[in-house]
């Protein structure tokens, strides 16, 4: 069963040192999951200031600077994992450093139906 772990947090909540430590710990957890065959991919994201949003309406592309929604907590990274069930996903999510400051949202992947 595949799950996406979406990391949400307030960017200004982290000092540079904390951010650095978080990256090291996250890399360690990612490596461990990879060794167990449970990690598909993971990455931190650049801050929301780097975000660009695209909308196509009536065939016209609109490009805007900034994230999809201006909220206090922003998407800051993700893990794509392949584990047994939700309980295993929860156990991984609670170990991620951002879980103790922000929120980790667990979303099961919807399998794409095989075409006829």
């Amino acid at each position: 069963m595949k799950y996406m772990l979406l990391i949400y947090g307030a960017e200004q909540d982290w000092t540079d040192d904390e951010r650095h430590e978080c990256m090291i710990e996250s890399k360690r957890i990612s490596d461990e999951l990879k060794d167990q065959g449970k990690l598909i991919d993971s990455a931190p994201l650049h801050g929301v200031a780097s975000a660009t949003c695209i909308r196509v309406r009536e065939g016209r592309r609109m490009t805007t600077d900034g994230p999809f929604a201006e909220t206090a907590e922003q998407l800051g990274g993700f893990y794509l994992i392949d584990v047994e069930d939700l309980d295993e996903a929860i156990k991984i999510a609670e170990r991620l450093p951002p879980a103790s400051k922000g929120t980790v949202e667990i979303r099961p992947l919807l399998p794409i139906p095989v075409p006829n």
Binding site: M1, E84, D85, L86, D87
Partner: peptide, 14 residues
């Protein structure tokens, strides 16, 4: 069903 919540007795630590 969708989040695949297991039908199990939680492990001791939980």
């Amino acid at each position: 069903r969708n989040a695949n919540i297991p039908i199990t007795i939680p492990e001791l630590s939980e």
